Simulated scan of single mutants.
Amino acid sequence: MLTKADDFPIHQTPEPIAYAGTDRNFYDRYFFNGYAPDGSEFFAAAFGVYPQLNIADAHFSVIRDGVQYCLHASRILNMERMDLTCGPIRIEVLEPLQKLKVVIEPSNGFAAELIFEGRAFPIEEPRFMRRIGPRAFMDYTRLTQNARITGWIEIDGQRRDLQAGTVGSRDRSWGIRPIGAPDPQPPVPMTLGGFFWQWTPLNFVDRSVFFHINADPEGRAWNTRAVIAPDGSGPEAHYETEAAVMGDVNLIAGTRHARGGTLNVPLAQGSASITFEPFLTFLMRGIGYGAPTWRHGGYKGELVVEREDIDLAAVDMASPENVHIQALSRVTLSTPGEAVQTGMGVFEQLIAGPYRPYGLG
């Protein structure tokens, strides 16, 4: 079946774009987040395409005054991968790799129009490849870019223009990861696995800093890197290292969420350190990550749109659906030979199963 994408030079296989190889877990996703400079508002969006499942879904979520408001949408893809609309949620690529727009048409009390403009050329993270025995659990590529954001968000008739200085991050990832209904046949032999993930896209006055780590239950990293990208820089001007370390992490009692931490990034002039002070918790299930009823790639019907309101003060943060979070954090950067900088970013953490460096069995 030919689709709009076939008229663009983006084919990855000898087949039309409608067919993404043969792995049913293939996905292609947009992610966005943003936050006011005073930390008073946080928002995020996700838009996923699942060609083998013939499904698209999208999510938009905003924290206002202690409540996380969520809008979820899912539809049949109809094998048309270039239609970046799912119910009221739409993505527009205004300038590839530089400027994108997220639009929420009025629905269920939501409306928004947000423009994300990159601060530097996107970074390409190392390819994520992880197997459970012979089975590919993950195999994907991701680009990440910090952005300045303009626009407005309306919830239940209360429209707010974004504050000047609103920033955030956006990413694009594609490849293989578990989506849709779980596989009914587990890997053989059964092993006690674990998944450890930290991700910290940070915005400072004149630069972006990125760090991520995937590690096994013993703390051995299988994918990690830190990047420093000065504003306006191209890919050749990014500083990259796989030797950065997140330390001094202690968990909030009864949860798998970090109370804080210190990232150390080795530089030619000595180690730079970044301290994290989390102060607001965004539940990633609000945009489909680990959501009990809105799992990414789950079949809902021809078109389904639902609203969900989460009272963050009443949530059990120890519940499995609330383990995956982005903690909005104030961050302080100390670099040898430079003045101390303060900024803001997220400390995303997901710890599933055992992680012995933190005493989790």
Rank of each mutant, 00 (worst) to 15 (best):
K4P: 06
K4V: 12
D7N: 15
F8H: 14
H11I: 08
P14E: 12
E15H: 14
P16G: 09
A20H: 03
T22I: 10
D23C: 07
F32R: 01
S40C: 11
E41D: 10
A44T: 07
A45M: 07
V49Y: 02
D57F: 01
F60V: 03
S61K: 04
S61R: 02
C70R: 01
L71I: 10
R75K: 14
R75Y: 06
R75H: 05
N78E: 15
D83G: 09
L84N: 05
L84S: 09
L84R: 11
L84H: 05
T85P: 00
G87I: 01
I91P: 00
I91Y: 05
L94P: 06
L94N: 13
L94Q: 15
E95H: 08
E95A: 13
Q98I: 08
V103C: 07
N108P: 03
E113G: 05
I115D: 05
G118N: 00
E124V: 14
P126M: 14
P126L: 04
P126Q: 12
M129K: 06
I132W: 10
P134Y: 11
D139F: 03
I155N: 00
R160D: 06
Q163K: 12
Q163V: 10
G165Q: 10
G165L: 06
T166Q: 07
T166S: 13
G175Q: 11
I176K: 00
G180Q: 08
A181H: 07
P184S: 07
P189M: 07
M190L: 14
L192Q: 12
G193N: 03
F195Q: 09
W199H: 03
W199M: 03
T200Q: 15
L202D: 01
F204K: 01
D206Y: 05
R207C: 07
F210Y: 02
N214R: 10
D216C: 08
W222L: 09
T224H: 10
A226P: 00
P230S: 10
S233N: 12
G234H: 09
G234Q: 08
G234R: 07
P235N: 08
E236F: 05
H238A: 09
A243H: 10
A244Q: 02
V245H: 14
D248C: 08
L251T: 00
I252H: 06
G254Q: 11
T255A: 04
R256C: 04
H257Y: 03
A258I: 01
G261P: 00
L263K: 09
L263N: 00
L263G: 04
L267S: 13
L267Q: 13
L267D: 12
Q269E: 13
G270S: 05
S271N: 13
A272P: 02
P278I: 00
F279Q: 04
R285Q: 12
G286C: 07
G288N: 06
R295H: 12
R295A: 08
L303Q: 15
I310D: 01
D311P: 02
D311F: 08
A313M: 08
S319D: 14
P320W: 07
R330E: 04
L333W: 01
L333A: 09
T335G: 02
A339K: 13
V340I: 12
Q341K: 14
T342E: 15
M344V: 12
G345C: 11
L350R: 06
I351K: 01
G353M: 11
R356W: 15
G361D: 15
